[in-house]
Amino acid sequence: MISLVIADRCTGCQVCVRVCPTNVFDAVRGGPPVIARQQDCQTCFLCELYCQPDALYVDPDCETPAAVSAEEVERSGQRGRYRRDSGWDEWAGDPRYANEHWRMDQIFARARALS
């Protein structure tokens, strides 16, 4: 469930307000958006993917809201990691984050061979 809008990272671009499929954010003029409807969050993590300043944190628990601080997220190394692992924006073209989704068939075949 969406847990944090990290205010000192947020540029106020409101992209998350626009892209959230379940409309959990409310825009705030000249400032970070607010999480207005946390219970509507579908824990799809897509807002993080679209947040270039990496100012959002989605906790993987989709049932219970998590109490997590910006400091804890920073220490965990998870801030912005999904966007980086996906090779979006400034990470595009970096071979460490290449899109290898096409290997899915091979991986399923390996699993069948092992069982």
Partner: peptide
Amino acid sequence: RVQPNMMLPFDR
């Protein structure tokens, strides 16, 4: 690199 979201529940 195959499924960037798969590990999120474990990593977090």
